[in-house]
């Protein structure tokens, strides 16, 4: 039997991805490769990848309000649920995919030994969570809205409130880390890290929208954030059709 190789991923569209060197974000100066990337075909190692659909998840892994809190207490800050769908570029839901998230607390302080910002730690907030996508690609987790914070970048730089996302798809070539921002935050447009993205529509797709339909009265507000991973290359037949 001749095994069917998974379809290769479509080449990455770099016009909507940040280039390596973006001088306004100073940390890239010494860390950006200066030679062009070498485009290589997708083989088995690129189209396959680790999949975590059967990973045993703890009851509170997807609840940052409670997962670091003393029983009976909860994290301080605006209570939110972040939800959305994980799709690929062909609009196929990516199911059983692991999404890991991390963030600062409501004061803009990370629970990390290298973060010395003035804002205090919240004893009931760790800032770490994870969730698996459902059969339809949907995911949701509860957290508190993180605060903006200053960072050393040579000037008066403040990060917009954001949540970091690490996303696995079906293949290692789809591996993605990104950040989610909040609708209406004036820091988004000012941020050199955000502005590393060369396409304003691509930036806008990282901004979560307030979702009153999922907001629970007297309890918690909802923000909607969809994530898209790379899709598969079209077949030769489909390419021909496009050429007609």
């Amino acid at each position: 039997m001749n095994p069917t190789r998974p379809k290769p991923f479509a080449p990455r569209d770099h016009s909507i991805q940040p280039p390596a060197l973006t001088p306004a974000y100073r940390s890239t100066a010494l860390r950006a490769p200066l030679q062009p990337l070498l485009r290589v075909e997708n083989g088995w190692g690129e189209t396959t990848g680790p999949v975590f659909g059967h990973l045993p998840m703890g009851d509170l892994d997807d609840d940052l309000i409670l997962n670091y809190a003393t029983p009976g207490q909860s994290a301080i800050g605006p209570r939110i649920v972040v939800h959305g769908r994980l799709l690929d570029q062909d609009s196929r839901p990516v199911s059983g995919a692991l999404i890991e998230v991390w963030q600062a607390n409501a004061g803009g302080r990370y629970r990390h030994k290298n973060d010395g910002y003035l804002a205090p730690l919240d004893p009931n907030f760790g800032g770490c969570g994870r969730v698996l996508t459902g059969a339809d690609g949907t995911y949701a987790f509860r957290t508190i809205q993180p605060g903006p914070y200053p960072w050393p970048n040579g000037g008066n730089d403040w990060r917009p409130a954001h949540i970091h996302f690490s996303v696995f798809g079906e293949g290692f070539a789809q591996r993605l880390i990104t950040q989610m921002y909040f609708e209406g935050d004036p820091h988004v447009a000012l941020c050199p890290i955000v502005n590393a993205i060369p396409d304003t529509a691509a930036t806008d797709r990282l901004v979560a929208r307030l979702d009153m339909d999922r907001t629970l009265p007297m309890d918690i507000r909802a923000y909607r954030f969809d994530i898209v991973l790379r899709g598969r290359q079209a077949t030769v037949f489909e390419n021909r059709m496009e050429g007609i």
Binding site: Q89, W102, I197
Partner: peptide, 19 residues
């Protein structure tokens, strides 16, 4: 393809918290 891949953003210095 119909949709655009989500833009990448740096993992930042505190990636260990999440990963």
């Amino acid at each position: 393809s119909g949709l655009h891949e989500s833009a990448s953003q740096t993992a930042g210095p505190y990636v260990h918290i999440g990963c």
